[in-house]
Measured scan of single mutants.
Amino acid sequence: INASIYDEIQQEMKRAKVSQALFAKVAATKSQGWLCELLRWKEDPSPENRTLWENLSMIRRFLSLPQPERDAIY
C-alpha cells in the first residue's frame, strides 16, 4: 500500500458516483467524517501506523474486487 491509494479512493467514488459516506461504509465500515479526514491528511501509509495500515488494507481489498462486484455492493 502506498500514497496512491488516496487517489484511487477518489477515482473510485467518481467512477461509481457514490458519496464519501457510502464509500466509507462499504469499503471500511467507517463514517463519512473518517473518510473526509483520511483524504484531507493523506498520511503516509506505513505498517508502523497499525490502525491506518489496517484501515487502508481493508479499502485496498475492496478496491481489488472486480468492478461489477463493487458496483453490486454499492
Rank of each mutant, 00 (worst) to 15 (best):
L39H: 03
K25H: 15
E69D: 07
I5L: 07
Q32V: 07
A16T: 05
N55F: 09
Q10I: 13
T29V: 11
Q32T: 13
L65V: 07
F23G: 02
A27F: 12
S46V: 10
L38S: 03
V26R: 02
W34T: 05
K25Y: 04
K25C: 07
L56M: 06
T29K: 15
I73K: 14
Q11K: 08
E48A: 12
S64R: 10
A3E: 12
Y74F: 07
R61A: 14
E69R: 11
M13R: 02
S31P: 03
T29S: 12
A72I: 14
A27S: 11
E69M: 09
S64M: 10
Q10W: 03
L22F: 02
A24D: 04
E37W: 11
Q11N: 06
Q10M: 03
R60S: 12
Q10K: 09
E54G: 13
A16D: 00
P66D: 15
K14N: 08
Y6R: 01
Y6T: 02
R60L: 01
K17P: 02
G33Y: 08
S46H: 15
L63A: 01
D71A: 02
P68A: 15
V18C: 10
E12L: 00
K14T: 06
T51D: 05
E8P: 02
K25G: 07
L65T: 09
P68V: 11
Y6S: 00
R50S: 10
E48R: 07
T51K: 11
L39R: 02
K14R: 15
P68I: 15
I73G: 13
S64Q: 14
W34D: 09
S57P: 03
T51W: 09
V26D: 04
T51R: 09
L22K: 09
A21Y: 07
C36P: 05
T51S: 11
A21Q: 12
Q20D: 05
D71Q: 04
A72H: 10
Q10E: 15
L39F: 02
F23S: 02
A24T: 08
E12Q: 02
T51M: 12
W41R: 12
V18G: 05
I5T: 01
C36Q: 10
R40H: 12
A27D: 02
Q67M: 12
S46R: 15
S64L: 11
K17T: 12
E54I: 11
E8Q: 15
K42W: 00
A27P: 02
W53H: 07
I9N: 03
A28K: 02
G33R: 14
M13A: 00
L56H: 04
W41C: 15
T29Q: 12
S19V: 00
N55K: 09
R50K: 15
L52H: 11
I9W: 01
K25P: 04
P47H: 15
K25I: 06
A27V: 13
R15P: 00
A21G: 13
R15I: 01
R70G: 00
S57L: 14
L38N: 03
Q20R: 08
S31T: 09
L65E: 01
R40S: 12
F62Q: 03
W34C: 01
Q11F: 12
A21S: 09
I5Q: 00
S46N: 08
A27Q: 00
D71C: 07
R50G: 10
D7F: 09
S19P: 09
V18W: 03
K42P: 03
A28M: 08
K14E: 13
K17L: 05
L35Y: 06
S19N: 14
D7I: 09
P66T: 07
L35G: 04
L65F: 07
A27G: 03
P47V: 12
A16S: 11
L22R: 10
K17S: 12
E48C: 13
L63S: 03
V26Q: 01
S57W: 12
S57K: 14
P68R: 12
F62A: 01
N49V: 02
I5S: 04
W41E: 11
F62M: 01
I73C: 13
Q11D: 15
V26T: 06
L56T: 00
T29P: 07
A72N: 15
A16R: 03
E54F: 12
Q32E: 09
F62I: 00
G33D: 15
S46L: 10
F62L: 03
N55G: 12
D71V: 04
Y6N: 03
L63F: 01
I59C: 11
P68D: 14
S4P: 06
D7L: 10
D71L: 00
L52K: 07
T51G: 12
W41P: 01
S64K: 08
P45R: 01
A27E: 02
Y74A: 02
W41H: 15
N55R: 10
F62S: 00
K25F: 08
S46P: 06
W34F: 05
L52M: 07
E54L: 09
K14F: 05
W34M: 13
E48M: 13
Q11Y: 08
E37F: 05
I5V: 07
L65M: 10
R40A: 12
W34L: 06
P66G: 07
I59A: 01
K14M: 09
